[in-house]
Amino acid sequence: MKATFQVPSITCNHCVDKIEKFVGEIEGVSFIDVSVEKKSVVVEFDAPATQDLIKEALLDAGQEVV
């Protein structure tokens, strides 16, 4: 499964690193693409990962998800 999250609070590479760390810890996540320019995060994943778990990880990383 693939999901795109709009994350307007992404401003720098530190944000990218933190997002990759938090989302990458979720079992089932196979790909993460964070774009500072587009302020988006694209995640490819399989169970047990879910969109809700990914959104929670983004929030835990200090990001706003819309």
Results as ranks from 00 to 15, higher is better:
M1A: 07
M1F: 10
K2E: 05
K2D: 02
K2W: 12
A3N: 05
A3H: 08
T4K: 08
T4Y: 14
T4R: 10
F5V: 00
Q6G: 08
Q6N: 11
V7I: 09
V7E: 00
V7Q: 00
P8F: 09
P8G: 08
P8N: 09
P8D: 07
P8T: 09
S9E: 05
S9Y: 12
S9F: 13
S9A: 06
T11S: 10
T11I: 11
T11Y: 15
C12F: 10
N13Q: 15
N13Y: 12
N13M: 14
N13E: 13
H14S: 15
H14I: 15
H14R: 15
H14M: 15
C15A: 12
C15I: 11
C15Q: 12
C15T: 09
C15H: 11
C15G: 08
V16G: 04
V16F: 05
V16H: 04
V16C: 07
D17E: 14
K18E: 07
I19E: 01
I19L: 04
I19D: 00
E20I: 15
K21E: 06
K21T: 07
K21W: 08
F22C: 04
F22W: 09
V23H: 02
V23D: 01
V23P: 01
V23G: 03
G24S: 11
G24P: 00
G24V: 05
I26G: 01
I26N: 03
I26H: 00
E27R: 10
E27A: 10
G28I: 02
G28Q: 01
G28C: 04
G28Y: 02
V29C: 04
S30D: 04
S30M: 14
I32R: 02
I32T: 04
I32W: 04
D33I: 12
V34A: 06
S35L: 06
S35I: 07
V36L: 11
K38P: 02
K38H: 13
K39W: 06
K39G: 09
K39Y: 06
K39S: 07
S40G: 04
S40N: 07
S40L: 14
V42F: 13
V42W: 09
V42P: 01
V42R: 08
V43R: 01
V43N: 01
V43F: 03
V43H: 00
V43P: 00
E44M: 14
E44R: 12
F45E: 00
F45S: 01
F45C: 02
D46G: 10
D46W: 11
D46H: 11
A47G: 05
A47P: 13
P48D: 01
A49W: 04
Q51H: 14
Q51V: 15
D52C: 12
I54G: 02
K55G: 04
K55Q: 08
K55Y: 14
K55T: 07
K55E: 08
E56V: 10
E56G: 11
A57S: 04
A57R: 06
A57V: 05
A57H: 02
L58G: 01
L58N: 00
L59H: 08
L59E: 09
L59F: 09
D60N: 14
D60G: 09
D60R: 15
D60F: 13
D60K: 15
A61G: 03
A61C: 14
A61K: 01
A61F: 07
G62R: 05
G62L: 14
Q63K: 07
E64I: 15
E64D: 10
V65A: 06
V65S: 05
V65H: 05
V65R: 05
V65F: 07
V66W: 07
V66A: 10
V66H: 08
